[in-house]
Amino acid sequence: MELLMIIKAIILGLVEGLTEFAPVSSTGHMIIVDDMWLRSEEFLTKHGANTFKVVIQLGSILAVVVTFKDRFINLLSFGRFSKTEIQGNGRLKLSQVIVGLIPAGVLGVLFNDYIDDHLFSTATVLIGLVIGALLMIAADYFGPIRPKTQSIDEITYKQALIVGLFQCLSLWPGFSRSGSTISGGVLTGMSHRVAADFTFIMAVPIMAGASFLSLLKNWEYMTMDALPVFVAGFISAFIFALVSIRFFLKLINKVRLVPFAIYRIVLAGVIYFVFF
């Protein structure tokens, strides 16, 4: 039984790692895969399963930190120790990242319990998948053909705030944090790659903060019996997120958002007709 639980944990880590930073909704995929197939609640209880999903999300966060380590050194040292080349009129500032974090951070704190109790279901995910896909199509259609912001160091405070407002949409499971924020960035005049870079950097503090708060609230479920399952999921998510982030960043400027939007709509349709 323990081996089976570890295999399930690795599969969930794979799903988390591959989908966390692609605009397809990792939360949506996790809920769908878990609720309809793996059923982690059967071996971790409801709150233990939710805590497990938080832990493996930390694996994905670590993958972002590794990928953008020079950029984070620059932000935290205010540019004194970074090897990152300056592009445009200056560097991305920590204060700009904070501006982008405030809207979703405030709403997340206010409505975290409500979201956990009422929005984590397959039905709500389907809604998020479809509406998020429509937003992504709109971003590609209405966004500028030749974006003015071609470097993350050219992002303005206004752009950071608008992206932060779009990030609020991702509080609805299935909407996708990267899908909503990349769409918002593109609509403000960023290239798809710049919007993706900024999205990933913003994701670290808000995801880490939410994860640690959830862990503190559910620390009692981090038992020694469950530890091998948690570790397996964490390592799996880290490895697959590391691969998927680098692949996605090379791909996004070429394919843009519409292919991901089509995938989301097809996925929602298949799930609806098969399971409902």
Rank of each mutant, 00 (worst) to 15 (best):
N89S: 07
K148Q: 02
M5T: 11
L38E: 10
F111M: 00
G209C: 05
L12W: 04
F72N: 07
I137Y: 15
P205H: 09
Y263H: 13
K158S: 11
L94M: 08
L18F: 05
F68K: 05
I265Q: 13
V229S: 06
T45D: 07
P173I: 13
V231C: 14
F142K: 04
E16K: 02
F230W: 03
L215M: 08
S60V: 15
K217Q: 11
I32F: 10
F111R: 14
L62M: 05
D113H: 12
S178I: 07
A160W: 11
I201Y: 02
V64Y: 00
A232K: 14
L171C: 01
L4M: 09
V99T: 10
F200P: 00
L3A: 11
F238G: 02
G17P: 00
I86E: 05
R193Y: 13
I98V: 03
D34H: 03
L126S: 08
F230N: 15
G100D: 00
N112W: 14
S214K: 12
P259N: 14
F260H: 10
V243R: 01
M1V: 13
T188G: 03
F238C: 00
R91A: 08
A232P: 11
I155C: 01
I131F: 08
V130Y: 06
I152Y: 05
P103S: 14
D35A: 06
V274L: 04
S180E: 02
C168M: 10
G100N: 13
A237M: 04
R264A: 13
S244W: 02
V270L: 01
L165T: 14
T51G: 05
G90Q: 09
H29I: 04
H192C: 01
L62I: 03
L126V: 08
S121V: 01
G13S: 15
L187P: 03
I137W: 08
G17N: 00
D116A: 01
I137M: 08
S211T: 12
L3S: 08
L216W: 05
Y114A: 07
M1D: 06
P103A: 12
I271A: 11
G209N: 08
F212M: 05
A226F: 04
Q96S: 06
T51K: 13
L92V: 11
T84G: 04
V54R: 14
A268T: 04
G88Y: 09
K83H: 15
G164Y: 06
M207G: 03
D197M: 13
D140H: 13
I102Y: 11
L3V: 07
R177T: 05
F120S: 07
M222N: 14
E20T: 04
I31T: 14
T51C: 08
M190A: 05
I131Q: 09
L14G: 06
W37G: 04
T188D: 08
L38I: 09
M30Q: 05
D140F: 15
G184A: 07
T51W: 09
G189D: 01
L126F: 03
A196S: 04
Y263G: 11
T122N: 02
Q87G: 03
I86K: 13
K254G: 00
L44Q: 06
L3G: 05
I239E: 10
F234H: 14
P147A: 02
D35F: 10
G164C: 13
S77I: 04
P205M: 00
I252V: 12
A104P: 02
L129C: 11
G13L: 01
T188Y: 09
T45P: 10
F273N: 04
F276Y: 13
I6E: 10
Q96V: 08
L58A: 06
G100V: 09
G132I: 01
M136G: 12
